[in-house]
């Protein structure tokens, strides 16, 4: 801590505090009490979109990575094509394709309109969740491919020599080591996924970015909601980084050279 708190840093921190104080006193924050409940709701929606899409995306990414690293060609080729297409097109385009494309296709089939799922399919969030999940799966599938390849062959051969069945090798030897190897990468990728969530506001999902845009439209205040928004995302990113660091420190300690 002492090494961190050098004289020039104290000056920088004081300048920063002065800037914050200027922002608080000189800018308009009178809209805040009225919109605070909506903002909290929006923040909550952002968080669950992020968590669910990351979990589902990861669940898809593991088979995608495995298929590319060790699968037969009829599984490896579609997996590679999926990852290339997802990584090669903008997420905004994918979201709009799913929402406007599927959304305009579904009402044409009466059996979908009469099914119990229709009230859900008429809302925007399933498409947002699906698009974010597929995007995360595409990027992480590529990461997992490298991770599965990075596990030393000797480990798998030893397990096979002990007569372990294949699913047990995957579950006990291959997957844990692959996941440990990519944990730092996954932390960064989750921050990227968080940065992608405001895009779903364009298909009328009311998360925190959409609330801030609404404040802008209602009150014609431009900077204040955006600054608050930037602060909220900074805090979220910090939390993600801390959570992943905690995960990394929990497992067996890796001995790094130096």
């Amino acid at each position: 801590m002492r090494g961190w708190l050098q004289p020039h840093r104290i000056v920088l921190i004081l300048i920063g505090l002065a800037l914050v104080w200027l922002c608080v006193t000189q800018m308009r924050w009178d809209w805040l009490p009225k919109y605070a409940p909506m903002m909290a709701e929006g923040l909550w929606r952002t968080i669950w979109l992020l968590v669910l899409s990351s979990i589902f995306g990861m669940a898809l990414a593991i088979p995608l990575g495995l298929a590319q690293a060790a699968g037969p060609w009829f599984l490896a080729t579609p997996a590679r094509i999926f990852c290339t297409v997802i990584r090669g097109t903008p997420l905004l385009l994918q979201i709009w394709l799913l929402y406007y494309g599927l959304g305009s296709l579904f009402p044409q089939f009466p059996w979908i309109r009469e099914s119990d799922l229709w009230p859900i399919l008429r809302q925007a969030w399933p498409y947002a969740l699906l698009a974010l999940t597929l995007s995360f799966a595409g990027y992480e599938g590529e990461v997992m491919r490298g991770a599965f390849r990075s596990v030393p062959r000797g480990q798998l051969e030893a397990a096979r020599a002990m007569g372990m069945p294949r699913h047990l090798i995957l579950w006990r030897i291959w997957l844990p080591q692959a996941l440990r190897a990519v944990l730092p990468t996954l932390g960064g990728e989750t921050v990227l996924q968080m940065k992608a969530t405001p895009l779903v506001a364009t298909i009328t999902v009311v998360e925190i970015y959409a609330v801030a845009s609404r404040v802008r439209q209602d009150t014609f205040i431009i900077y204040e909601p955006l600054l608050l928004l930037a602060l909220a995302y900074l805090a979220l990113a910090g939390l993600i980084v801390l959570a992943f660091r905690w995960f990394e420190n929990r497992g067996p300690v890796r001995h790094r050279p130096g």
């Binding site: 921050v191 940065k195 992608a196 900077y223 930037a230 995302y233 900074l234």
Partner: peptide, 17 residues
């Protein structure tokens, strides 16, 4: 800051700013 805040928000802040 740039790597933690979504590009969309930076674009709006910088665009107006």
């Amino acid at each position: 800051i740039v790597r933690a805040v979504p590009e969309l928000i930076l674009i709006l802040i910088l665009y107006f700013g």
